[in-house]
Structures are given as structure tokens and as C-alpha cells.
């Protein structure tokens, strides 16, 4: 890690007015995302127990799988933060390495989640089984869809980064996608707590 001397202390992504406003706009978008997920959490929590004689969460949830998913996503949030740290040290290589690790962990998370969903469906708990499982698949599935979208989006940004290098424009895009990625981990914390932990403890 080389210590780079550069006169303005402001990170690249904040150096243009557009960059600053885009980042602010993305925070406002994240506020809307919180509202979106809150409606799905509310629906899920109201429908807990409405299993219509189908299997319940306690029978199907497995702590090991949930913990693996949780730590994959948590670690990917950490490595994504390191990528931003290296970006601010003007290390393009550092950004590629740590974003690459982040994407690999994200794909691992998705793999485990898809495996988990397929397993539940085989055990007789599908989207149409009961109100409870409908709410479960919509809430956790919406989060999974966000992760999928995030992986695609970040791959496109990496391609642009390869072509253009670290400019105020590309740095802004990397930074905003990192906010999105951290946000997905924040949502997962609440899914871990309100869906899995609650489902297994009750």
C-alpha cells in the first residue's frame, strides 16, 4: 500500500458537483428502499403462523445454512468497504481485487439461497403453499433479486473501470454501487433477525 500525496483531500467521487449530488440522490433512493422493504417485513410478520396446515418455518429453517449466508454477505460488505479504501488510495488493482472478492462472496450467497429455496420447495413449502410461505418468498426473494441485480451492475462498472481507469466519473459509480451493496447487508441483518432467528426460536 503506497501512501499517495495529492493536494485536494476530497476523494475523487466527491470532486465534481455531479458526483456529490448523485451520491446524495442515491442516499434518498436508499431511504425509499427502506420503505419498500418495511412493507414486505410488515406483511411477513402479520402472516407468521398462517401456514395453512403446511410445513412451518421451525421445521425447515436450518441454522448452518443461514449462518453461512449471513457470513458470506457480511464478509462481502467488509471487502466492498476495503475496495473503496483502495480506490481512495488510487489503487486500481486494489479495487479490482477486493470488488472481485466481493462479487465471488455475493455469488456464493446467491448459490446458497437458491439451494435453500429449492430445498424448501422439495419439502412442500412453495410460493403457493400458504400465506406464510408466500410472504417468506416475496420478502427474501426481493432481497435475493437485489443481490442479483447488484452483481450484474457492479460487473458492468468493472468493465467501465477497466476501460477508463479511476476518474471522478467511474469513482462515483464504484462508490454508489458500494453503498447499494452495503445496504443489501443491512437488509439481510433484519431478515436474519426477523425471519430466521424469530422463525427458529418461536
Amino acid at each position: 500500500m503506497e501512501a499517495v500525496e495529492h493536494s485536494p483531500n476530497t476523494p475523487l467521487e466527491y470532486q465534481t458537483e455531479t458526483g456529490r449530488l448523485n451520491i446524495l440522490g442515491f442516499w434518498i433512493f436508499l431511504g425509499a428502499e427502506i420503505a419498500l422493504f418495511s412493507t414486505l417485513f410488515a406483511t411477513y410478520l402479520v402472516l407468521v403462523g398462517r401456514t395453512a396446515d403446511g410445513p412451518g418455518p421451525a421445521e425447515l429453517f436450518e441454522i448452518s445454512g443461514v449462518l453461512i449466508e449471513t457470513f458470506l454477505l457480511l464478509t462481502s460488505s467488509f471487502t466492498c468497504g476495503l475496495a473503496i479504501h483502495y480506490m481512495r488510495n488510487h489503487s486500481l488493482k486494489g479495487v479490482f481485487v477486493w470488488i472481485g472478492i466481493t462479487l465471488a462472496l455475493g455469488l456464493g450467497f446467491l448459490g446458497f439461497e437458491i439451494y435453500e429455496f429449492v430445498h424448501y420447495i422439495h419439502e412442500g413449502a412453495a410460493l403457493t403453499t400458504s400465506a406464510y410461505w408466500s410472504a417468506f418468498f416475496v420478502l427474501v426473494g426481493t432481497h435475493g433479486a437485489h443481490v442479483t441485480l447488484g452483481i450484474g451492475w457492479i460487473i458492468l462498472i468493472l468493465i467501465q473501470l477497466k476501460q477508463r481507469g479511476l476518474t471522478p466519473d467511474t469513482s462515483r459509480k464504484v462508490f454508489i454501487s458500494s453503498l447499494y451493496w452495503h445496504f443489501l447487508d443491512v437488509v439481510w441483518i433484519f431478515i436474519f433477525t426477523a425471519v430466521y432467528l424469530y422463525g427458529m426460536v418461536m
Partner: peptide, 21 residues
């Protein structure tokens, strides 16, 4: 503004979840 937006969104989320339940 960033912190205010997120705090407001958290208030909305708490109102939606607790109110619905």
C-alpha cells in the same frame, strides 16, 4: 441531509411495521 433521509426512512419503516402488526 443523508442522515436525515435515513432517519426519516427508519421512522417510516417502524410506523409501517409496528402499525401493521
Amino acid at each position: 441531509v443523508q442522515v436525515g433521509t435515513i432517519l426519516y426512512a427508519v421512522f417510516i419503516a417502524v410506523a409501517v411495521v409496528a402499525g401493521t402488526i
